[in-house]
Design a protein around this nucleic acid. Structure first.
Lengths: 195, 195, 195, 195
DNA sequence: AATGAATGAGAGTTCATTCAT
DNA sequence: TATGAATGAACTCTCATTCAT
């Protein structure tokens, strides 16, 4: 609700956010209790409402925050890539690494679809935006076929990465196997047909 | 709870299922009220418990049912395909067509992840299974490169289709544009590199 | 919220209304707890919401109900009065009698001003309406001076009765002394000047 | 809690009182938030408790204060009246004028009935007292009929003025129309019968 | 087979008040 | 004198579920 004016306040607010990430990462939104968040943050229930309007407010803030953080990581990871393929590979690996460190991201973002659709759309729209620009540049440089529709390609790639993260990182709690990554890269380079 | 013995009972049960599809398709699980389901089905609240153990039971049944139905559609659509690429194209189109008719499918399935994880996994596992078998056969026939990991490919393709359905059918409530479908087919055939 | 369909339901709803009258008659709105109403009605807390949307809904219904009841009493009491003065006297006495039987009326109506202003206005507007009509007829018959403004007179009389009820019935929990009533009648007949 | 020792303290205290008048004048007691009072006064929440024991304390002080102020106005306005009727007229006009300037008075005083009954009674008792004395003197001088009960008359007059203020000043936010005032004066002089 | 009244645990939320600084 | 962070009791409201009819 209001931003803290003192260091103590800032610490409390952050503690609440951290606790919320952990709670929303392990319990579905409707079952996630404010009580549990404040318990983990080590503050009284009422303290929650000093800093957040309500349950959805802290949830939405979390979605925005994780989105920014992830986008930052991807930008860093792909900054100096010599070509689109390298960029794609580095981006994929960076994404999977981030997911390993923040498995809650997934649960939080997919729930946003039902809890705060706007935040959810914003999350994906911002990724799409960056992606589109990159693909168009690559097309201009002749690194990507002019036959592909940038919008569709961005969409397809995001779907692939998303699903891979879910399949291995979340469901099996392990790194995506190298051969799976190679398969994706193969798909990008040659399609799936025989060499 | 119990299966109906009379025609009247069967009709009531079906009315409840139809109502549930519509409710769960437009309201998130926790907010979807039994009251609303019975209201739309035109029966009294108590009647619900004559046919279903509880809220989750009807939800899970819905997930299973829609999964079977969709798999059936896909099998039909791809039965006589001459090769893997054609099969893939027909499958994709059939999936998108089904989604257009049952937009609730999406909301229901993605929520299953939080409501009944088992049903959710089963849903995807069954698809994956069929996919894997098909890919391996295609590899044996030399239609798909031996370099690709079937598991990873199945995963990637499902991710693509999933995301495309979400992007256009759900978010924009329209058919996936033909150029987007062509882009995916291009990706499968040649990767994304220049011709 | 919904009207009961069975006798049992009707009884429960009425029990809640009766309990509410007693609670709102002795506790100010904000402090009046739903718990207390259901406790006195002998039902579970949740039952309240089967019949009423929320706290204000039952309160407003109470205001409307008591207003109707009181207006009915007044109409009956003054029906056959031979002239305006008699009518006024009978009306005053009937009002005070009703107040003695329903001391909660007062507390409830005066709170309505803050809780549901619309209901409050409606309460007084309906009384004013009836009053105005009566006064105009009396003027036409020559029983009331043409010099008085009907609106202002209605207002003044209601103020008098209101305050008297408060002063004796509520504050001192006793009947208004006969000499007080006579004083009011004297005021109506001769003003307050010396005979 | 404590009276201020410095000029700065006095200013803060007064700012709180002013803010409280505005808040209690527009929001019912239970909903009136200390936060809102301090916000309007431009001080921190905690500052409130430097000067007032609690919420009710500032409210009661407001009731007392407004009562004194109003009584003072009335005394001034009626000081040199040649007779009871003139006095009554001047008092009525002065009361209505005060109400126009302090519309919050009304809301505050009527709520006092539920919030601090003692303050409420005191408010009216003090008015009644003055009134009684005045009426008795007028009776002794022969200006008011010996047939009227002073207590009842005081009560009736207060009721009239009260209701008129509510009817026009508060509900319609305008001056009481002159004909309404004349009607009251007519009632006092001749009763309501025909001339 | 169907009803609808009744339940009560449990959640989110408010806010007057306290207190360390 | 003033601050604003922190508290926790108390309340309203929801709704899946049970049960007598």
């Amino acid at each position: 609700m209001s931003m803290p004016a003192t260091a103590r306040g800032r610490a409390t607010r952050q503690a609440l956010l951290d606790a919320a990430e952990s709670v929303f990462g392990s319990t579905r939104y409707a079952k996630a209790a404010i009580t549990e968040i404040t318990r983990r943050a080590g503050v009284a229930q009422g303290t929650f409402y000093v800093y957040f309007e309500n349950k959805q407010a802290i949830f939405s803030e979390l979605v925005h925050h994780m989105g920014s953080e992830l986008r930052h990581e991807l930008t860093e990871a792909t900054r100096d890539a010599p070509d689109r393929f390298t960029m794609e590979e580095r981006g994929l690996r960076a994404f999977l690494a981030y997911l390993r460190q923040h498995p809650s991201l997934y649960m939080i973002v997919s729930q946003a679809e039902f809890v705060d659709e706007e935040a959810y759309r914003a999350y994906y729209d911002k990724f799409t935006e960056g992606y589109l620009a990159g693909i168009k540049k690559a097309q201009a440089r002749g690194e990507v076929s002019a036959d592909v529709d940038p919008e569709a390609l961005a969409c397809a790639l995001m779907g692939i990465y998303d699903f891979m993260g879910m399949r291995w990182v979340l469901w099996e709690d392990r790194d995506v196997p190298e051969e799976a990554i190679q398969t994706v890269l193969h798909l990008l380079r040659h399609g799936i047909g025989p060499a």
